[in-house]
């Protein structure tokens, strides 16, 4: 595993970036922006992953929820880092807002120009 999963995340990021930069369709650009967000979220969740080497081998990756009767120290020994998960939740909320705004703008653009093709949506120059 190790570095390969990060490379995969990076590949998703590049795929999203490609869609945003190279595609000419408004809807495809919105999908590309969403993929870009997911790639970063995936990266953030991966950096929170922790394993603890015990006698039985690598252990960990438990959800960071305190179970009944469990001490904080026991939880710390096995749980993943909860902070990146909180970050992802926030970043998802932001991405939701941005995507909603993008869709609204795309609908309005379609109303004005009658097309989703950016080749034809070019009234601004310079």
């Amino acid at each position: 595993m190790g570095i390969a999963i990060y490379l995969l995340t990076f590949a998703i990021l590049l795929a999203g970036l490609y869609a945003v930069v190279a595609k000419k369709n408004v809807v495809k650009i919105i999908v590309g922006a969403a993929i870009l967000d997911y790639a970063v979220n995936l990266f953030l969740v991966l950096i929170g992953w922790r394993t603890v080497s015990t006698a039985a081998g690598a252990e960990g990756g438990a959800a960071p929820i305190l179970a009944a009767g469990q001490s904080g120290r026991q939880l710390l020994a096995s749980a993943v880092d909860p902070l990146p998960q909180a970050l992802i939740l926030t970043s998802i909320v932001i991405a939701l807002g941005v995507t909603a705004l993008m869709v609204a703008l795309a609908l309005r653009l379609h109303e004005k120009y009658g097309t989703f093709d950016l080749e034809n949506i070019r009234r601004l120059r310079g």
Binding site: V40, F43, I94, L101, K112, Y113, I121, R123, L124
Partner: peptide, 24 residues
């Protein structure tokens, strides 16, 4: 208006790329 929507969309897409980079 048509131009404003076009400008806002351009701004929004590039802004999203920028903020994704920052978050990364």
């Amino acid at each position: 208006e048509a131009e404003e929507l076009e400008a806002a969309f351009k701004y929004l897409v590039l802004g999203t790329v920028g903020s994704t980079l920052i978050l990364l």
